[in-house]
Amino acid sequence: MTEIKYTRKDFVSDQEVKWCAGCGDYSILSAVTNALPEIGINKKDIVFVSGIGCSSRFPYYVDTYGIHGLHGRAAALASGVKVSHPHLSVWIATGDGDSMAIGGNHFIHLIRRNIDVNLILFNNEIYGLTKGQYSPTSPLGHVTKTSPHGTVEHPFKPAELVMGSEGTFFARVPDTNPKMMKEVFIEAAKHNGASIVEVLQNCVIFNNNTHEEITGKEVRDDHQIYLKHGEKMIFGAENNKGLVLEGLKLKVVTIGEDGYTLDDILVHNAKDKDATMHYLLGRMSLPEFPVAMGVIRAVDAAVYNDELEKQISNAKATSKIKNMNDLVNAGETFVL
């Protein structure tokens, strides 16, 4: 294949972008259009698929093929695109309502099947498009128009659903860090299998600053840990905090205090087939822990579309029936 050199502009469509000013979706769009030139795929082979929501408008704004589906059904729609035409690079843009509520079922089954698509989950912990109702990721007690007294339901953590579905790739990024987003989208594209990237996205209108405790300039170094495969799990404004394992639990320690040295700090192994550690890392939350960012899990496993293609080529090679005429004349027939 001839190498094509793209720039960001090649992926910007002619459609007017209609998100609210200041919406986190803009930075995600620009991180994606920045990442696409670097993944080395011809844009004729890229398809963006979405459900319904503010975030699901995404396909209109990328100059590739695209299909804007139904609320909750992006994963199923994308599965059909990829399984039928596996040479395509398939991306899903979806919201927390789209993929955690109405489409929760499709979300887990996409992951379980490990179909080679890249799913970007715009998690603003709110229903944006329908004007601010609580979502399955809204924190307990969240006050919205449909929960004027605060919600009485527990939120999902997307990471846990991914691990629980035997996911092969999970990453998390804040919409405030363009560089990290771009790096992670490239990693997601490289991974063969279902890649899930949760973006902590700000809805400036209906849930402003919901992630501020994690992403705010003042706190972000102490409240986030950027995990990188093969590197120590260190974080903090002074780069002196780290994670250790005590029994079956993670613990935050300060290097040089309480007898902890750099040697005690865990090394991140994103490729560990056993997801236990990834589960612990994925569910870390404030105030006890920093929130894990970066690629938390990226393991190789059989991929649905690859396995299907193998079965097809085996069957084609071994079967005597090569076309429909062979088939209709095979087996028991009667000449009258």
Partner: peptide, 22 residues
């Protein structure tokens, strides 16, 4: 290619995806 989906909605949606793709 047959895709045994998780429900009827996914069945038809996957088919629409496949149709879009040709």
């Amino acid at each position: 290619k047959t895709f045994q989906a998780e429900d009827e909605i996914a069945g038809v949606m996957s088919a629409i995806g496949a149709a879009y793709a040709g």
